[in-house]
Design a protein around this nucleic acid. Structure first.
Length: 884
RNA sequence: GCCGGAGUGGCGGAACUGGUAGACGCGCCGGUCUCAAAAACCGGUCCGGGGGGACCCGGGUGUGGGUUCGAUUCCCACCUCCGGCACCA
């Protein structure tokens, strides 16, 4: 055994041995329980992994290793979400085709993952950009298509002028593109959609049974946005042939309608606008269409709108109300038209105040007077009723007046349904999933357009539709994919009639690939089908799914949707793909900003000019003092990245692993500080030194020595050491599956501290064979228990102590419940709730004895000052509180 | 504005179903080794006050109130920070 801990020798050595032994290889084994541990499908970027990315992989790896050592058959695979726009954008910038860059980046990721000792079964590696994989992504498209869940439609879509492609609703964040933050525009184009809305209810209700972070479930619920209400029809005055429908969740307020609003894009606007308003309406619609997202973002909550000159008839009382066009009504939600009730809706209220429209109160809070005199003036001023959106009693509502509004809602819904002019309806915020991308680095949509047969799906046996080589990377700008400029690709024959036909040139967005990869990992090399039923039945669902919270809606919703479709088609054994979900916290790094120079101007919200690393090194002392350091998410663009490579170089992979798990709870954001890394390195050094000392006295047969009889004659310190060993194991068994890696590592450190103390004492003087057996038990258990966290040093020590094989093949040590329990405890004695004494007593002490000992304490007597206790509270195993 | 989460020493954080607040690590202070420094190791370290000292007294988990023998933990109100959504009728 080397004198010092030399990670540079032991880490590569063990990584090589693991590889040669195919240690991480997984096969189906019906005799063992399975455990599927999966991390989010990474996109292999040219920047490689940072220690920030490792925050995900390291704890997941520790969990996977632990589960293996618990006897589970663990599936822990890794692969690459290799299609996507970053690779294309890079191709444009550097002139290198993704087919060359992507494999290089993958190789680097893999090298880094191996460097930090991740236990992936590389035989199951998959790459979504290979025909072997995307063939089956296309197969999924056809599955959805056959089930009526894929359709092409002309639609007003989100267009990113920078990416030159359309975006799904989920990919638009605050009106900007999720990738490049460019303002998104609206365009009308034919596009492919998946009918995720058909699954809205199931996607909503099935969330309840999932063991996911509550926040993520909440976000999905909100994204689906189910609401119940009534959709009804309104006549337009002077147009007996025209009517429009509105949706409301507050049918109880229908008597308070004082105007109606159509979305600017509503098809009826043209027909009903009167000549004198036409000019103004057209201008408004044009502005809304063009500057849509921009103005809506800039002009906060400012309401604007224009009168059409037309009137709608309120069906409940026959009163005409003016019809406005306003952009606060969205064409994409509900019917694109609303009844406006300013007295009971904030938005309608603001609009009515601005345009001087009447405000008619139809609900009053229970016990309140409906008289105008009672109004203290809403935000509109004296004499104007405030906007009240809560529950109450209906007034001014004809035959419904006097009813509690909740009841009125039901009666009115019945009223509309009985007359056939309206019905109860459920609305969703969720829209269908737009899948088309006008890009070449994605899976081609397997559809052919034939003059005779129309839209024809490519037959399964003709898959894959191979992606051709693209020489011109640039998007066409017309909105078409670069694939459209490759005649050999576009021109084909119709699979049905054989006549000349054209291929669809759109590809599928990247989320298609990641919506089913967890199935593929179960059977990654199947070339007959996407996956075999037998294997999927064995492995699915994913038991632990680990990744960042940024995919809360997009990926996680899409993957759930595809899984449900597969379930309905009889090819998935589960309705939900991910039983447990855990989100890791971000890794923050200090990022330097400098004050702006005279010629530089900061935009709003900026605190200074970002300083690059090379610039930082050239700065003078005076300049450095001016810097403002801010904790920000580690990223290439902030020049604050720390790589695992440099940490492994300076310390070791095991150090990095321990630090990332120890520094904070798994789901908390952490601040990257190298000082803390040093602490973990010290721990490993200390471990090494102690093991070197202990090795000579190590007794392999400690199990035979430590019989119950021997245990009974051990001294206090030895029995306590055994208790510490077993209690530590117990704690590890509960912390690891619970993702409490920080306290798990703390437990290891404490255990080692105790062992060091015990060893010091046992080694000087009181040395005996029994003591060495106690040390040996602790040492052997410690090495094996350390293995999931720091596998390299664990295997090295394992070998140094003369054991064969790998720690990963050992059973994670079980603990003895009786030994884990302390024999003595420190009984706390309080007087009036304040700690006054601590007395060490046997664990099985009686309540009476506790009370007697407590009252006998001189300290307690001193605080009692002769007074007699009014009450004595005894909590067994804990404390005694004397109340005076 | 709405939804979700969190406020604990100089710092990251610990504390089971209400029961010793501050585990563990960093930093800092003192020491050992060294010509010296670094590294490494050993000891100390919530704040205030008292004592030569082992110790003793008081305060303390964002703020204010409440329940309780006892509250970081439960309840009410408020403040701050982080994440998400934002005209969804």
């Amino acid at each position: 055994m080397q004198e010092h801990y030399e990670p540079k020798q032991i880490e590569p050595k063990w990584q090589q041995r693991w590889r040669e032994a195919k240690l991480f290889r997984t096969e189906e084994d019906p005799s063992k329980p399975k455990c599927y541990v999966l991390e989010f499908f990474p996109y292999p970027s040219g920047d490689g992994l940072s220690v920030g990315h490792c925050r995900n992989y390291i704890p997941a790896d520790t969990l996977a290793r632990y589960m293996r050592m618990r006897g589970y058959n663990v599936l822990h695979p890794m692969g690459w979400d290799a299609f996507g726009q970053p690779a294309e954008n890079e191709a444009i910038n550097k002139g290198l085709h993704p087919k060359y860059t992507v494999p290089r980046y993958i190789a680097n990721y893999k090298r880094q993952m191996n460097l930090i000792g991740l236990s992936y079964d590389w035989e199951r590696e998959i790459n979504s950009s290979t025909p072997e994989y995307y063939r089956w992504t296309q197969w999924w498209f056809l599955l959805l298509y056959k089930r009526g869940l894929a359709y092409r439609a002309n639609a007003l879509v989100n267009w990113c002028p920078s990416c030159k492609t359309v975006l799904a609703n989920e990919e638009v964040e605050g009106g900007k593109c999720w990738r490049c933050a460019t303002l998104v525009e609206k365009r009308e184009m034919p596009q492919w959609f998946f009918k995720i809305t058909e699954y809205a209810d199931r996607l909503l209700y099935d969330l309840d049974a999932l063991d996911w972070p509550e926040g993520i479930k909440q976000m999905q619920r909100h994204w689906i946005g189910r609401s119940e209400g009534v959709e009804f029809e309104m006549q337009i005055q002077g147009h007996p042939d025209l009517k429009f429908r509105v949706f409301t969740t507050r049918i109880d307020t229908v008597f308070g309608m004082t105007f109606a609003v159509l979305a600017p894009e509503h098809p009826l606007v043209d027909e009903i606008t009167t000549p004198e308003h036409r000019h103004e309406i057209n201008a408004y619609r044009e502005a809304a269409r063009r500057l849509d997202e921009r103005t809506r973002l800039a002009a906060e909550r400012e309401r604007t709108g224009v009168f059409t000159g037309a009137y709608a008839i309120n069906p409940v009382n026959g009163e005409p109300v003016p019809i406005y066009v306003a952009d606060y009504v969205l064409m994409t939600y509900g019917t694109g038209a609303i009844m406006a009730v300013p007295a009971h809706d904030e938005r309608d209220y603001d609009f009515a105040l601005k345009y001087g429209l009447p405000i008619k109160v139809v609900i009053v809070p229970e016990g309140a007077s409906p008289a105008p005199a009672a109004w203290q003036g809403g935000s509109g001023g004296e004499g104007i009723p405030p906007c009240y959106t809560g529950d109450g009693i209906m007034v001014n509502s004809g035959e419904f007046s006097g009813l509690p509004n909740r009841e009125g809602m039901e009666r009115l819904a019945d009223w509309f349904e009985a007359r056939g002019i309206g019905q109860r309806k459920v609305q969703y915020r969720l829209r269908d999933w737009l899948i088309s991308r006008q890009r070449y680095w994605g899976a081609p949509i397997p559809i052919v357009y034939c003059e005779h047969c129309g839209e024809v799906p490519v037959p399964e046996e003709q898959l894959p539709v191979l992606l051709p080589d693209v020489e011109q990377y640039q998007p066409s700008g017309t909105g078409e994919s670069p694939l459209a400029r490759i005649p050999e690709f576009v021109n084909t024959s119709c699979p049905q009639c054989g006549q000349p036909a054209r291929r669809e040139t759109d590809t599928m967005g990247g989320f298609a690939c990641s919506s089913w990869y967890f199935f593929r990992f179960c059977d990654p090399h199947n070339d007959k089908e996407p996956f075999s039923q037998e294997k999927v039945r064995y492995w699915m669902p994913v038991d632990y799914y680990v990744g960042g919270a940024e995919h809360a809606v997009m990926h996680l919703l899409y993957a759930r949707f595809w899984t449900k479709v597969a379930y309905d088609a009889g090819i998935s054994p589960v309705q939900e793909p991910f039983y447990r979900l855990r989100n890791q916290g971000m890794v923050l790094a200090l990022t330097p900003y400098r004050p702006p120079r005279e010629d530089e101007i900061l935009s709003a919200g900026e605190i200074g000019i970002l300083v690059r690393r090379d610039q930082l090194e050239q700065m003078s002392e005076a300049e450095r003092e001016q810097l403002i350091w801010v904790w920000e998410k580690m990223s290439k663009s902030k020049y604050n990245v720390v790589t695992p490579d440099e940490i492994v170089e300076r310390y070791s992979a095991d150090t990095l692993r321990l630090y990332e798990m120890f520094v904070a709870p798994f789901d908390t954001a952490i601040q990257w500080e190298e000082q803390g890394v040093k602490g973990m390195h010290r721990f490993l050094n200390r471990l090494w030194r102690l093991m070197r000392e202990v090795r000579a006295c190590f007794l392999r047969d400690w199990r035979e020595i430590l019989t119950p009889e021997t245990h009974a004659r051990l001294d206090d310190a030895s029995r306590q050491m055994r208790q510490r060993t077993h209690a530590s194991l117990k704690k590890l068994h509960s912390d690891i599956p619970d993702f409490k890696f920080n306290t798990a590592v703390a437990t290891l450190i404490e255990w080692l501290n105790d062992l060091e103390d015990y060893w010091r004492k046992a080694n000087t003087g009181m040395c005996c064979a029994d003591c060495m057996a106690v040390v040996s038990e602790a040492v052997e258990c410690f090495i094996v228990a350390l293995s999931p966290f720091a596998p390299h040093i664990a295997d090295e020590l394992w070998e140094a102590f003369g054991f064969e094989g790998f720690t990963l093949q050992q059973r994670f040590p079980d603990y003895d419940e009786n030994l884990a329990r302390a024999e003595m405890f420190e009984m706390v004695v309080q007087v009036n709730g304040k700690v006054r004494d601590k007395i060490t007593v046997p664990a099985d002490i009686s309540r009476e004895a506790m009370e007697r000992l407590a009252l006998a304490s001189p300290r307690v007597q001193a605080h009692l000052q002769g007074k007699t206790p009014r009450k004595v509270i005894v909590v067994p195993g804990k404390l005694v509180n004397v109340v005076v």
